[in-house]
């Protein structure tokens, strides 16, 4: 028997699924099991796993529910990339596979492992609670159901895409900050926070924002864009993250946190020089004392060991800085205008 759609009889390939295995009851550490099955074109990774579970090894454990790309249960890493098994075509993966004929299937990263391909989603739910990922309606509960809020198409479009999120946690798994810091808010929760913050029906924008600018919050993102690239619903998650940051600076000022100061220092440098003045950036971000105590000793060590050149004390402006400044101001003006029209 083969996993078949009955449809495309023209092609069939032997595919080895190298599946991550770990049963906490018996295994001291994870290992991989290989299952080789013939797969026809049009078959998804999830259907292949179902086949393996039903015909070869019933103990292979993974979550799956709707099998149609809407419930978000079957998030896993397929050849290193976090995605939904149910919408991922085996042949598409094979075409890009580094090892011919082999597909490696692993659990999502950055969430505690339970068994095989199953990870614990509770930390994500806890963060949704911590950052109040709900609309706290301006309408008192007793008044609800009597009349509609009137919402413009323009406002709807601001959160429409964000409400596509199915919490599959692919972005969580791909996030480079979470790998270093499990307390980090995480991209999905930032996306949802943004969605709530731009909803005119919500009443706790200020409190949510106050939480988001704290440590482990929105300023910790390093713009690697991994979340956005891996989003199974193609949601522009980084727009949401930038949106929260712009909102934070606008609502709370430039000197609110080291995050906002850092962003402001960046802006100043780019506007003045067309590039960064790295020597003073930490001072402008975190102040002299912090820099002396926390950064200087390591920076000195790195320079001594020739891991980094000493930063030049004086930075000259880049060539063509005048034209650049004009363009830069024009852009800044555009963004401001955009914000004003949103506020309406």
């Amino acid at each position: 028997m083969t996993v078949s759609t009955d449809q495309h009889k023209e092609g069939k390939k032997d595919v080895t699924f190298r599946v991550f295995r770990f049963n906490p009851q018996v295994d001291s550490k994870p290992y991989f099991d290989d299952y080789t099955i013939p797969v026809e074109r049009g078959v998804t990774v999830l259907r292949s796993l179902n086949y393996i579970k039903e015909h070869i090894d019933g103990s292979v454990s993974f979550r799956a529910f709707c099998q149609a790309g809407i419930c978000g249960s079957c998030g896993m890493r397929v050849n290193g990339l976090s995605q939904l098994a149910c919408t991922t075509q085996v042949w598409d993966v094979l075409a890009k596979s580094r090892e011919p004929g082999i597909i490696k299937v692993e659990p999502l990263r950055n969430l505690p492992l339970i068994k095989d391909l199953i990870v614990d989603m509770d930390p994500l739910v806890d963060k949704m609670k911590h950052y109040a990922n709900w609309v706290d309606s301006t309408m008192p509960e007793a008044q609800m159901g009597k009349k509609e809020f009137l919402i413009s198409e323009e406002e709807f479009l601001r959160y429409d895409k964000a409400t596509d999120c199915i919490l599959c946690a692919s972005c969580v798994s791909e996030c480079s900050i979470l790998r270093a810091n499990k307390e980090y808010v995480s991209p999905a929760v930032l996306l949802k926070s943004y969605r709530m913050n731009v909803d005119s029906r919500d009443s706790m924008h200020e409190q949510r924002l106050a939480e988001l600018v704290k440590d482990h919050g929105v300023w910790d993102c390093t713009h690697c864009y991994r979340c956005q690239e891996s989003c199974v619903k193609s949601i522009p998650i980084m727009d949401a993250i930038h949106g929260i940051r712009e909102d934070a600076i606008e609502s709370r000022g430039k000197n609110d946190t080291s995050g906002s100061k850092h962003a402001e220092a960046f802006m100043t440098d780019i506007e003045k020089k067309g590039k960064l003045v790295e020597a003073t950036l930490p001072i402008r971000t975190n102040g002299v004392v912090w820099t002396m105590q926390n950064l200087l000793p390591m920076a000195m060590k790195m320079i001594m060991k020739r891991r980094t050149p000493p930063p030049p004390p004086l930075v000259k402006s880049v060539k063509g800085i005048k034209i650049f400044r004009t363009m830069f101001r024009e852009m800044t003006e555009h963004v401001k205008q955009d914000h004003k029209s949103h506020k309406k």
């Binding site: 009851q25 579970k53 103990s59 454990s61 993974f62 339970i114 199953i118």
Partner: peptide, 9 residues
């Protein structure tokens, strides 16, 4: 599957 933990089978 004879396991106690997350026995989807």
């Amino acid at each position: 599957d004879s396991s106690d933990v997350f026995n989807t089978n």
